[in-house]
């Protein structure tokens, strides 16, 4: 499961969904897959990111700390169709690309801090099915 996906998911148990998303990775084994870098792509993904959640996920998986707040990028200059931006922005977008799209959790589990349910991850695929008594 890619780290960007982890930003879009929550516990399958309905009563956990009204609280702050609270899934944490445990015993995660990571993999990296190279994907073509597009700064424009990352610029348009950034507004979707739940930054506090991404910060927590990155910390759990042992990545260096992310900036305290979501970075604000300056508007793309005229003629910069690829959204390359300044050198500093380019570096930041590349780091986010690597973290969000190239890094995935191959095995381990996701644990809900609210109800304690554990969702196993195996061969890159997370199992979010619930036992019948929790549905």
């Amino acid at each position: 499961m890619k780290l960007l996906t982890a930003n879009f998911i929550t516990c399958s148990v309905k009563s956990c969904q009204s609280v702050t998303p609270a899934l944490s990775f445990r015993d995660a084994e990571l993999a990296r897959e190279e994907i073509d870098f597009s700064p424009l792509f990352l610029r348009n993904i950034l507004p979707r990111i739940d930054w506090p959640l991404l910060q927590r996920t990155a910390k759990e998986l042992g990545f260096p700390a992310l900036p305290e707040t979501k970075p604000e990028l300056s508007p793309i200059a005229e003629g910069d169709e690829e959204g390359v931006g300044s050198e500093e922005e380019q570096k930041l977008l590349k780091e986010l690309h690597s973290l969000l799209l190239e890094t995935s959790v191959q095995s381990g589990k996701l644990v809900c801090a609210n109800c304690g349910h554990e969702y196993p991850i195996s061969q890159g695929i997370a199992n979010f099915l619930l036992p019948n008594h929790l549905v």
Binding site: K2, C11, N127
Partner: peptide, 19 residues
């Protein structure tokens, strides 16, 4: 585009609302 993942789940039950 970019394919993120296939999730093993009942319908959309593990997706955050409004995404």
């Amino acid at each position: 585009g970019i394919f993120l993942d296939a999730l093993w789940v009942d319908l959309d039950s593990c997706l955050r609302g409004g995404e």
